[in-house]
Design a binder for these strands. Sequence first.
DNA 1: GTTCCGCATGAATCGATAG
DNA 2: ACTATCGATTCATGCGGAA
Lengths: 297, 297
Amino acid sequence: MTKKDYLDKIIQGDCVKVLQDLPDNSIDLIFTSPPYADQRTKSYGGIKPDEYVNWFLPKAAQFKRVLRPTGTFILNIKERVVDGERHTYVLDLILKMREQGWLWTEEYIWHKKNSYPGKWPNRFRDNWERLIQFNKEKNFSMYQETVMIPVGDWAKDRLSKLSDTDKIRDESKAGSGFGKNVSNWIGRDKVYPTNVIHMATETGNKNHSAVFPLDLPEWFIKLFTKSGDTVLDPFAGSGTTLLAALNLGRHFIGIDINIEYIQLSNQRVFGKQLKLPIIAEKKGKYTVSKNGKNGKK
Amino acid sequence: MTKKDYLDKIIQGDCVKVLQDLPDNSIDLIFTSPPYADQRTKSYGGIKPDEYVNWFLPKAAQFKRVLRPTGTFILNIKERVVDGERHTYVLDLILKMREQGWLWTEEYIWHKKNSYPGKWPNRFRDNWERLIQFNKEKNFSMYQETVMIPVGDWAKDRLSKLSDTDKIRDESKAGSGFGKNVSNWIGRDKVYPTNVIHMATETGNKNHSAVFPLDLPEWFIKLFTKSGDTVLDPFAGSGTTLLAALNLGRHFIGIDINIEYIQLSNQRVFGKQLKLPIIAEKKGKYTVSKNGKNGKK
DNA sequence: GTTCCGCATGAATCGATAG
DNA sequence: ACTATCGATTCATGCGGAA
């Protein structure tokens, strides 16, 4: 099989194995939300927190191989509480992936509008998740204008009556590359967003339960790819990432190990139930060698 | 010197040295925003990112010694960008502090409400900071009711006209007959917040450069201490934490190495310029021994 | 049609209880 | 002692039926 065979398809199988059919440097954006430790136990068997990093690293190695040098990998994840403490597997994973050669470019925050209710003696509701940006190289593609947002009320308010202290504050920071000059922003109706994304979770849909809203992958797909590029989601789940890519005119490749998710995502993306799910062939051509170099077998 | 001598004072000196005058288990909350790596270089001499963890760890050891078993340490920090990547010193610090015996209980996010738009070729404006919660023991003090926030429209709406369906839903769930849960809601106009704190960057103070708004330490002081408790800020800076403690009827101890900050914070907290700053004596009585046990020299 | 309102429910976590 | 299951907590959203 080649990349062409997988393009705009949803493949059932373990992503490490499936990705062995994809050549090096063929993906522009990987956006995925892997099963969190001890979650989704029915579909994925439940990875133990202590084993999470070792479970994930071989997959990350393949992701790195198939990603284009200018591509980006966005990982949606949040550590769970174990024995009253936040477990450190996400921190460990970031450090280990850097050893693997990834650059930890940025950490975006998904500030959820609505999350599960509840309060406990020692903590409040967890209302945010990490969207960790990894890159292979410093010069990755980024199309910032595509995600500009209307100027908020606060900005209008603030810019309309620029106080002296504001001006002074800004000038003092201008040298450091911050904001340059406030006057640059006057008269604009759109501004660049920040690294905090405030969106609702998607709940209560009848036939599927998407973990994140369509807006979330759309935001990152617009930001890091252009029309005709290829988006990979190796833990496609209900297919939200793939649907976002399709809507935006990008190619997509979806992978999931769970047959029910394959059927669900096929239904969502293609509007029909899949009769013959695509399954990866036994032996892929492309692997990650032990010295970290990519290449064919 | 004893704790009594330092209570409600601002002391000039290196916090490791100053804290040697404080006995074990004498502080209820440590809230601080240390100089970030390579930031505030004039005041603190600029700690290099790679050296940050080693610079911080001896201080953390003293913090752990003086903190009460039921106390909490809130660390306001954000990793800076070095060479196009987020530096890992905050992650490393969390891991090393766990080795020191701290529990990493939670990570709150401060989502900044009003910051200027800004962008760089490869990233957007950084609009959030970490507020990392460390504890010595699992059973720490927390006064959740003190930070409750106004309820959303949902409950108002709902309570105003307790529908039959509400009653049914409640009965079926509780089995304890109508009223138990519903009556809990009646008259309740406040709910618990989440671990995302959405606050403005500044509260309009003009003549000083407070790093964070007064609301931020106030929120944590209310949450983790009661009236009469003692709050420590070992990097007091312009004294925002101390002012918040004073406003809330808590004792405070402020430490800063920089004489200009000492004068500024004295002015803010006590409303007057300090003429004879308090300086720590040469040798403190209390230290952290090599085996990690606390005790007097 | 259009608006209004009830309703189910989600990457959660703790403590108690049961095996 | 260690693990598994269960109840309690109480917000925003979108759907579907009602007005």
